[in-house]
Design a protein around this nucleic acid. Structure first.
Lengths: 221, 221
DNA sequence: TAACTTGTTCACAAAATTGTCACAAATACC
DNA sequence: GGTATTTGTGACAATTTTGTGAACAAGTTA
């Protein structure tokens, strides 16, 4: 949520959080770009009138690197060039003042659309690494490598949430199934085997240990 | 732990205590309600078959006042209406007989989920400094820097309460955990290490000493 | 049934973090 | 200026966490 007026930020945050969304806020364009780069949001609510970089520019910059859904916010008085907005890659726009319920509904609608078009995408691709979930196939450095089911699901989970750190317990919960009663150190062994199989061809070390926290899938800047 | 059969109570208590949990028990619904009101438990294990007030009623009563996580216990034979359970606000259920390890795993899973939903805004951003709690990542001057867990939590705490001065004792309490028995000067060492790691790229000195008081996170006006 | 694959656990070594102490430097106060 | 407090710093030992190899268990296939 990129918006310079704090009351609006708080209101929108509150309504979205109540719906179970996780919300991060930025009050200007610079910060928005930094944040968008550091973690991958599922959707961006972007006010057009911002101090410093304006919304159009922020939108254009973001579009250079990702196709994350963007909803633009615009004051009623402002002349809003819908065509320009869509050309820059916005997915929807809302005119202020808006009702919170309408805002939530639009966010959900855009996410639903994005999810549908993204659903077919069962392939994750990183430099020197290709993971195809529907085919259960992994290519590293152009060469196919054989993973066991657990290894594959672990890699898939980590790779589909890049950068984020997961504790051993969280990994057990998400990959093995919730409330797994076994030893958390089991994860270590699987990570070890994964690293071994992945390291052969590509030099990259994708699975990184975060000391005292767990593991994360690292992706180059 | 609400359960009328003493052997089960003892077994469950024993296993949970071995994991470091503090366990209080009640043998009927009346007592359970009194206890739930008198001290705030982090989680309630609730047997459905109880003398007097049954589990459903206890659950409903508790839900009127708090959102504490509840795990229901049910005998395999009993017909258990899962939907009703979830409607009444239970977070999970376990069928008896259960393995102690599974029970412990579920307790942990439910507690972890409850904790997660409470955690919000996970990204803090200041000029030349970005802290992402969910990724356990810190960027200073565009460059990622490696912090140890303690350093990270200390920085996170200070940065999420900018300008405010904290004494060493307060920092110990908030970052290390309440009633930390060690030397308050330990904080100094961590501050020193943090400053060293943060100073390399950006000229900014974010952590400022307030003589005779403690430390604070400085943010430019 | 035997060989094989897969997943889990364990024990030990290796690595990193953390807390403490002693002493130096800085600051406040007289 | 002198002194007492407070803070900064470097080194070291204790503790915690992770990597790794091997053994074991469960399930599958030939």
């Amino acid at each position: 949520m990129v918006e310079d007026e704090e009351p609006v930020r708080d209101l929108v945050s509150m309504y979205l959080k109540k719906e179970g969304f996780r919300v991060e806020t930025a009050e200007d364009g610079e910060k928005a770009l930094t944040m968008a780069r550091s973690f991958a949001p599922d959707l961006i609510l972007l006010d057009l009138m911002l101090p410093g970089l304006d919304g159009w520019t922020v939108c254009k910059e973001i579009r250079k690197t990702t196709s994350v859904p963007i909803i633009m916010l615009t004051a009623r008085g402002e002349e809003f060039d819908r065509v320009l907005g869509l050309e820059l890659g916005a997915d929807d726009y809302i005119t202020k003042p808006f009702s919170p319920r309408e805002m939530v509904a639009r966010v959900k609608a855009v996410l639903r659309r994005a999810k549908q078009t993204g659903e077919q995408n069962t392939v994750l691709s990183y430099p020197g690494l290709l993971i195809d979930h529907s085919a259960s196939r992994v290519e590293a450095g152009g060469r196919e490598i054989q993973l066991t089911p657990k290894e594959f699901e672990l890699l898939w989970f980590l790779a589909s949430h890049p950068r984020r750190v997961y504790s051993r317990e969280q990994l057990l919960e998400n990959v093995w199934g919730y409330a797994y009663p076994g030893d958390p150190r089991t994860v270590d062994t699987h990570v070890k085997r994964l690293r071994e199989k992945l390291k052969n061809p590509g030099a990259k070390n994708y699975i990184v240990t975060v000391w005292g926290k767990g593991y994360r899938f690292e992706v180059a800047e």
